[in-house]
């Protein structure tokens, strides 16, 4: 019987490593290299920036986006983020990569946080009238990925990313002029 073992690759960052400004860029480069995806890859980097920042900020550090509801709050949020990372002793995130098929990968990001209640999550639906300074991260992730799922208590997010599947989901919320490309 043929056994197609899937290879998984694992990264882990903990405590003050989470302050590294190049964490997302380094991770994007590493994942592209392991998956034979072109780099720089801004579509993947945006997705990773959102889910890794969410895992660190809301998961590991327990920060609430609500603080960011004003320019002053935004600055406070970033100061508080820095302070909490500096004091961190048992915080970590882990990233697991699984190659599904050429150009298609699954990425799971797990954090040491307690997860979240569904009431903590901001609705994905956006309107042109929404001028909120935060709350668009998961909308971007779900639009750029083939799938997005929260697992367990909410401290793990799993996404399927298709490097060649341009605008399939984006067309749902954006312009609809991409349908012709999909038939190619």
């Amino acid at each position: 019987m043929l056994n197609l073992a899937t290879e998984t690759i694992f990264w882990r960052y903990e405590n003050q490593e989470l302050a590294d400004a190049d964490l997302v860029t380094d991770l994007t480069r590493a994942i592209c290299s392991e998956s034979q995806l072109s780099y720089p890859n801004s579509k993947l980097q945006v997705v990773l920036s959102e889910i890794v920042t969410n895992a660190i900020d809301h998961g590991v550090l327990g920060l609430k986006s609500k603080i960011k509801d004003s320019p002053e709050g935004f600055a406070l949020y970033l100061l508080e983020r820095e302070r909490r990372i500096n004091e961190l002793e048992n915080g970590w995130i882990s990233i697991t990569l699984e190659k599904l098929s050429p150009g298609s990968i699954q990425i799971a990001v797990q954090d040491s946080g307690a997860g979240f209640e569904s009431t903590d999550v901001y609705p994905l639906a956006e309107s042109t009238a929404d001028l909120s300074l935060y709350g668009r991260g998961l909308l971007i992730v779900s639009s750029l990925c083939a799938s997005m799922t929260h697992v367990g208590s909410g401290n793990c997010i799993v996404i399927e990313f298709d490097a060649y599947d341009d605008d399939r989901r984006t067309s749902v919320v954006g312009t609809s002029n991409t349908s012709a490309e999909l038939t190619n």
Binding site: Q45, V46, E50, K68, Y134, R136, L139
Partner: peptide, 11 residues
């Protein structure tokens, strides 16, 4: 600009 995320939208 190489890439832009949701925090840039807020900014």
């Amino acid at each position: 600009t190489d890439y832009m995320d949701s925090s840039a939208l807020g900014m």
